[in-house]
Design a protein around this nucleic acid. Sequence first.
DNA 1: CTTTAGACTGAATCCGGGG
DNA 2: CCCCCGGATTCAGTCTAAA
Lengths: 374, 374
Amino acid sequence: MRSVVSSPANVDFSSANKPEWLDTILKGDCISQLEKLPKHSVDAIFADPPYNLQLGGGLTRPDQSEVDGVTNAWDQFESFEAYDAFTRAWLLACKRVLKPAGTIWVIGSYHNIFRVGAIMQDLGFWMLNDVVWLKTNPMPNFRGKRFTNAHETMIWASKDKDSKGYTFNYEALKAFNDDTQMRSDWTLPICTGHERLKGEDGKKVHPTQKPESLLYRVMLSSTNPGDVILDPFFGTGTTGAVAKKLGRHFVGVERDRDYIKAAQERIDAVEPVEMNSLKVMQGKRAAPRIPFGRLLENDLLKPGSVLTDKKGKHFAMVRADGSLVSGPHTGSIHKVGALVQGLDACNGWTYWYFDKDGERAPIDELRQIIREAS
Amino acid sequence: MRSVVSSPANVDFSSANKPEWLDTILKGDCISQLEKLPKHSVDAIFADPPYNLQLGGGLTRPDQSEVDGVTNAWDQFESFEAYDAFTRAWLLACKRVLKPAGTIWVIGSYHNIFRVGAIMQDLGFWMLNDVVWLKTNPMPNFRGKRFTNAHETMIWASKDKDSKGYTFNYEALKAFNDDTQMRSDWTLPICTGHERLKGEDGKKVHPTQKPESLLYRVMLSSTNPGDVILDPFFGTGTTGAVAKKLGRHFVGVERDRDYIKAAQERIDAVEPVEMNSLKVMQGKRAAPRIPFGRLLENDLLKPGSVLTDKKGKHFAMVRADGSLVSGPHTGSIHKVGALVQGLDACNGWTYWYFDKDGERAPIDELRQIIREAS
DNA sequence: CTTTAGACTGAATCCGGGG
DNA sequence: CCCCCGGATTCAGTCTAAA
């Protein structure tokens, strides 16, 4: 099977190149299973780690053995210690397999997210945002002793402070959000209805199944089609289902065989969306660079033409090499634009206007003509 | 002077009983100043510690104007270790002066709140809620590289796991919130306009002055009239101003003499207000906006679906990010709607129709489904 | 007086490829 | 590795000055 969409950044997973772990669920604890993946093999990680710290039961040691109930034998400090060690271990394992330009999402509540976040910083992850998921339909606080706990927190981080080139589909999210920047607060309903997986007994299969809408937005914002997304706490496979739907690859790790079974059936039933519809809005950054000189080569501007700013306050003459002259200032369209305004920087493409049949029009229009022609 | 309102839980501060530090600002660093207060002497704490922002170089807006960032010395720390040690010290000092049934609020951003929260847990504070302050008017992300950082996080905690009898004015908050439980997300504007303190030079006195509406809600929810509220990072005194307004006592600690001067003048000018007249300070919970992309996340439309105008004259395909493609045109529902009609603007919600069992229906119907479900 | 256009501002970890 | 430099990027307001 070919990857649904290939982009320059994606590895080619066609036919024999596809690793055996790709688009599968690895059974076992996440630290030992992640050792099976090569270093720098995933583009993104979504992690929904356990956070039942003080509720008793379910806490695991760093070696993944079950803590036999958090009873009085474990005082509070030791519980935090154990949780911290566990957190450090799986985050380190994740860091190894994450590509240098990859990013990681971790979701949690106030019980655990502060510890997780502090450890992420200690391990060198670099926070890009914290994003709050506001629940439209949270469970009320029955005893009236606290505020309704109506949100969960996600941390979005790059691998290191200096990592560059992480994926953020800014323009796509802006289009998604009716043409204003996507904010760090996302209002979405919790997972209910037919989306919620239920067993033969009619009971929910997993206690904390995340809504697909949440993963949809995570993947749309920070991954590209063809990317590999790791979920080290796969549960019932929301990450896998959405990845398949959106033309991404996944790899999951899960210990519980019932969860794995439910997840696999769920993913098998997913139909990927049409490839063409996976393309998203791209900004100017993604477009090939056109040097200003090309406008002269293509005869869209002639040497000796005069450019002005929008209001006709400043003038500059175009020379044959694509440099401008304005009074004492010479240089690129950007440099001269900055100099005449007395600023440090300037985007010459939008600052300078040319004479278009007697009207002023930005020279960016001419660049657009070249882009469309090629 | 008698305390404005007395309640059974309050100490009687009438006449000679009033400690000299009450309703004053202590000058100095918070750890040494807090030693002057007796153990178990305050009912609540609101702390707005330095965030340790770690800003890089300058930041300019798209129009090349400079963003006036927080570059003050008080926000600079050498390392996470140094910040952690500082945090541990002031939290311990706070814990000593807090009454057994008292609660503490700490506000921060993703730069510091995870470390602060983890240390609070380590010191034995018991988290009651994390509350997110959603800003109606945050500063945008100027470079388009992240989500708009549109919220800050507050941790509300009791002194110990087993502390009992902390104040939570459940009924008052419910009434305040149109008879539904107050949630853990509060939508309020940032501090601007007349409320923002400015010096003779017209510049803001303090870079991070908090809005009074935020403190109003904090005090209304978790303190009683006559209570003593400590603010160990008093700044320009929002805590003191709101405390006086609401008939609470305050004690502040601040190192900067300019901040102290501004705070004292501000507090002196405050007149305690009748409770009834404070209704105006209610922040409305903004009706959540439903962006077009939500329809895809919620599976009401699938990527690849085709929309038409009412008469079926124009067609457009929906992509995964909620953008439309119609011939050469791409963009949001609004933008493409305008482009295909040759207009400047268009309301995509009413212009575009989807196929509903063979009939054309406006996509606004789908938005309505989401609204009704939440 | 009212209305409108434009300037200004806010707790910000805000670029990346080529030489 | 660093340096250079092309050039991409903003939302909800408040306030002032002009009309």
